[in-house]
């Protein structure tokens, strides 16, 4: 059995590493009965937002998808991108575990099986000047990547700008923008240290990638093969949550080597609070769309996180 597996992100991204890990584990468990051909960097022509239907229709048997953009299909997928809900990797993992049954249900209703989740390193602020106090975000021209970020940073008096990722570097180069909201990983991949000097870990959000497969393809497997797929998926999830911790440390080392100031402990609590307050609008908006289910997840999460 041969599967083509698209992934919008580069071959060196944390999600690509997870896909390779999954493929190896699966091949081992099935004695090579199931092999996967990876298509990284969007090379099969799909963006993440396309992959939900592509897997449902069997255009591809399996895909690794950044789920934020799927929120236009079901608002539940916005959960992991909500600002300042999970403020550490441990909390992000807990949030995933609490919400997992709900994600599984959505996939199942759309002829798919959810296999594993792979987290992004937490997003922070890359900037030309230190952003550690509430005053620092005022009038900051910052590129945000989704609607929530736009709303949140607008509310704290910053100037969020929407730009395609391809335009970010030219705009940084010429001073059109002064800051970028993205993960340590994403910024490192684009060598943002050539233009920016400071990174503030504000733990804005830890968005998720999810790997999902076509249910018909899954059901057509032998029980042993199905077992192997689920086992490999479980192992990959664990592996990815461990890997993201290492990536975070590794990213910070690389950034420092390239002369950046990485602010982790010296980000003032006031700044975090101002941002978190601004983020509440986005959370309220999400609760309105998801209703009881959304509230139930957040309550359960708060309870287990001891918040």
């Amino acid at each position: 059995i041969e599967w083509d597996m698209p992934n919008e992100y580069n071959a060196t991204s944390i999600h690509a590493l997870g896909d390779k890990y999954f493929a190896d584990a699966l091949s081992q468990k099935t004695d090579g009965e199931i092999t996967i051909t990876h298509h990284f960097g969007g090379s099969l022509g799909y963006k993440s937002v396309d992959q939900f239907d592509a897997v449902a229709d069997g255009a591809v048997p399996i895909a690794d998808t950044f789920v934020g953009p799927l929120s236009g299909i079901d608002p539940m997928f916005l959960l992991s991108s909500l600002p300042f809900v999970a403020s550490s990797i441990d909390e992000a993992k807990l949030l995933w575990e609490v919400a997992r049954p709900y994600y599984e249900k959505i996939f199942e209703e759309n002829n798919q099986k959810l296999l594993y989740a792979s987290p992004w390193p937490p997003s922070g602020i890359w900037s030309k000047t230190p952003v550690i106090a509430p005053g620092d975000v005022k009038t900051l021209k910052i590129r945000t990547y989704d609607a929530n970020g736009t709303i949140t940073f607008r509310d704290v008096g910053a100037a969020p700008i929407q730009l395609s990722w391809a335009d970010v570097v030219p705009q940084l180069n010429t001073g059109g923008i002064g800051a970028v909201l993205t993960s340590a990983d994403g910024g490192a991949a684009a060598s943002l240290w050539e233009y920016l000097s400071d990174f503030s870990e504000v733990n804005y959000a830890s968005p998720l990638n999810m790997t999902h497969m076509n249910l018909d393809v899954f059901n057509a497997l032998t029980p042993e093969q199905q077992e192997a797929v689920l086992e490999a998926a479980e192992e990959t999830t664990e592996h990815q949550w461990q890997l993201v911790r290492e990536r975070r440390v590794g990213n910070y080392d690389t950034m420092r080597e390239n002369g950046m100031n990485v602010h982790v402990d010296d980000v003032s609590p006031e700044l975090l609070e101002v941002l978190a307050t601004a983020g509440e609008a986005a959370i309220a908006d999400w609760l309105e769309k998801t209703g009881e289910t959304g509230q139930k997840i957040l309550d359960e999460f708060a309870e287990q996180a001891g918040k």
Partner: peptide, 18 residues
């Protein structure tokens, strides 16, 4: 420069576009 293909290469290969 500017060049669309170079921008795409830079993003994929994680090489400085500048």
């Amino acid at each position: 420069p500017p060049s669309i293909v170079m921008i795409i290469y830079g993003l994929l290969a994680e090489v400085s576009i500048a």
